[in-house]
Design a protein around this nucleic acid. Structure first.
Lengths: 145, 145
DNA sequence: ATTTAATTGCAACATAGTTGCATTTAATCA
DNA sequence: TGATTAAATGCAACTATGTTGCAATTAAAT
């Protein structure tokens, strides 16, 4: 996984990964850095309305994921979301892909809870785990009253 | 949640829940009881090819879920799957909807691991959890060599 | 047997995601 | 700087999952 602790500028990141610094890619990466949430293609499509084609957004997200700068998760509605991981915890666990994601039923936001770690699970014999995804649905800090 | 420990016949279950005993509903419920896996509408559509309309299957699954005899989960590919819960563990945790689901990357099967329980998680303050779903991807017992 | 509400089938639609291909453009090179 | 080229984009078309409205059917009650 890419080291985001240094909080590099989007342009520099694209450069180092061998991507061209196109306006859309810069905007998408910049947005991901700013919001610190797991965003979906439909969300980006609305955000960058008429600025980029749907397909382009899908391809940008796939390309970023392939390079490991973002990770893909399925949210509670079965929609793919992508997020940067810029916390130390994520770096440590890069090989397990163990993430806790919080789906807010109020605002719909999905955030990566880097501070919550998944305790080890005892699987039944003959089952081997490669990847774990823990989805929590509830009310997030912003929507709590 | 319905008590499946008694392993009632499909017809009796439909009866008790106020559903009509139509052939499709009997078949679907019977299938869910037999396979003991989380099945999707597309799978049922293939299984019951030309016997039931796509929409009918979606509606049967929704109706069963609304009555609480099956539960709905999103699998690793974002597809809705439904499964009966006939183990004691599931009964105990009925109000939390805490399930561990194993997605086999070999055969594609999704099974509910009733024996694995999710340890309590410490969420950051101001986050409140209503529902937890833990998806594990890996190789299941049948595909293990 | 008649009635009626539940169930089904069909058509049409909505949304997420993918693929092929022609066009554009960022970055390299001469 | 201008020409070259591979990367990136846009468009059209397609697939899959899932939903809604409505008319036709049917299980079950009277």
């Amino acid at each position: 996984m890419f080291n985001f602790n240094e909080m590099k500028k989007a342009a520099q990141i694209l450069d180092e990964l061998g991507f061209r610094k196109t306006e859309i890619r810069l905007k998408v990466l910049d947005h991901l850095q700013k919001v610190n949430k797991a965003v979906s293609q439909p969300e980006l499509e609305i955000k960058f309305n008429k600025f980029a084609d749907r397909v382009t957004l899908y391809r940008i997200l796939s390309a970023f994921e392939a390079k490991g700068i973002i990770h893909k998760i399925m949210d509670a509605h079965g929609v793919a979301r992508y997020a940067l991981c810029n916390h130390k915890h994520c770096m440590e666990h890069q090989h397990h892909d163990e993430h806790v994601h919080f789906n807010c039923t109020e605002c719909g936001d999905v955030v990566c809870l880097d501070t919550v770690k998944i305790p080890a699970l005892k699987l039944p014999k003959a089952f081997s785990s490669a990847k774990i995804n823990l989805n929590i649905e509830g009310i997030c800090n912003h929507c709590q009253k």
